[in-house]
Computed example of a mutant assay.
Amino acid sequence: MPAVSAAQGRSTSNGGAQRRRAGRPSAAVLDKAGITAAALELISRKGYGGLTMAALAKVLEVAPSALYNHVASKQDVLLLVEDHLMSLVDLSGFGGGSWEDAVRAWAWSYRDVFAEHTPLIPVIAVLPVTDAPQTLAMYETVSKGFLDAGFPQERIIPAIVALESFIFGSAYDVTAPEDIFDSGSMAGSTPNFSAAVRSSAAGQERGRPADTAFSLGLDALISGLGALRK
């Protein structure tokens, strides 16, 4: 067999190097941002029940073993999702201005973020915040805002929980059908309720009923919680 020339050898060698470079990704195939985005996309299509490690690996087009190199469990994925969503909540009001305005802006933003991700509310609402940096940063900012406004330290967390309970429930209300309070054939046997529903609809000048209800309830909560300040 004839010997391969030096030029041919270099060409073959270079071609092999080029092929290796082409096959090597310029960045990691997986990262936490990509896993988070894929998890949110999967939940939006299939609900929380559809979020499994196997399904997530399939969306990411990787083997499950590759996914486990970045997250140890579904709980880790949920922490990434929680942290991402909490990072979207507007905290700018706590940088200045009144406590009332800061809480109002935070609550509206919080509700709107989770209105887009209602399947996650039952999970996120009871998910520990341990080792979730963005989530903890949010709570730190809000807690300091309460403290600076004169709240007794022991009342801050209960106040935040009370607001969050209202916020999460209100996020569901954003997606409720418009006729949710229609009494149907039983309108005659529920005259007070039915009249209140009609009156509410007639008084709805603009915006969504969910927004009107949220504004009303939030104002009441802010007023009531404000009375706890020193």
Rank of each mutant, 00 (worst) to 15 (best):
V4L: 03
Q8V: 13
R10G: 14
S11H: 10
S11L: 13
T12C: 15
R21Y: 13
R24K: 14
P25N: 06
A37H: 09
L40G: 02
L42T: 11
S44V: 06
G47F: 02
G47I: 10
G47H: 09
L56P: 07
L60H: 00
Q75L: 12
D76C: 07
D76L: 10
L78Q: 09
L80H: 03
V81M: 09
E100T: 12
E100H: 05
V103R: 02
Y110N: 01
D112V: 04
F114L: 01
T118S: 02
V126T: 14
V129A: 06
A132G: 11
P133C: 11
T135H: 03
L136D: 08
M138C: 13
M138A: 12
E140N: 10
T141D: 15
S143Q: 10
L147Q: 08
D148C: 12
R155N: 04
I156D: 08
I156A: 00
I160A: 00
E164S: 06
F166M: 13
I167C: 00
I167M: 01
F168C: 11
G169N: 02
S170I: 11
D173H: 03
A187P: 12
T190V: 15
N192K: 06
N192V: 14
R198N: 15
E205R: 08
F214E: 01
R229H: 12
